[in-house]
């Protein structure tokens, strides 16, 4: 893909808006269409596009496989931890109402954090799966 000038330029122009859009989908998911699952997939797709155009080795320098692998677990743990915190604060597991003084604020906060967890895990798993498949042919 080294010589495809048009692809490289277009990808360079597109990747920042894709990643930015993923973040918008993640954090605006409460009010419009969107949420962790969609954002994670779009974020992963942005990295996959980068890896397709500029090569997997270059992409691995940006998203280091060790860090991405940790992120796979961090998302699920973040989700589970919210449940534990609500348990410790006197509610039942994953009952966000106790997370803040006002139940509605608590719900909002809980949903925000677990959506973040979902987004991190989904994005990390998508990137990891792609890296694993792409590295297979070469080794």
């Amino acid at each position: 893909m080294r010589h495809h000038l048009i692809l490289r330029i277009v990808a360079k122009l597109l990747i920042p808006p894709i990643l930015l859009f993923a973040l918008y989908v993640q954090f605006h998911g409460d009010f419009g269409p969107g949420g962790g699952f969609q954002a994670g997939v779009i974020f992963g797709a942005g990295f996959i596009l980068y890896a397709l155009i500029f090569g997997v080795e270059t992409a691995k320098k940006v998203a280091q496989p060790e860090i991405v692998r940790v992120m796979v677990a961090v998302g699920v743990l973040l989700y589970g931890a919210v449940g534990l915190v609500s348990l410790l604060l006197g509610g039942s597991y994953l009952d966000y109402s106790v997370l803040a003084h006002d139940p509605v604020r608590g719900q909002h906060l809980g949903i925000f954090i677990i959506e973040l967890g979902v987004g991190i895990t989904v994005a990390a798993v998508m990137i990891t799966i792609f890296f694993t498949f792409a590295s297979r042919g070469r080794s």
């Binding site: 699952f37 997939v41 989904v122």
Partner: peptide, 8 residues
């Protein structure tokens, strides 16, 4: 929504 992502 969740089934699609789990599906992939």
């Amino acid at each position: 929504l969740t089934a699609i992502v789990v599906g992939v």
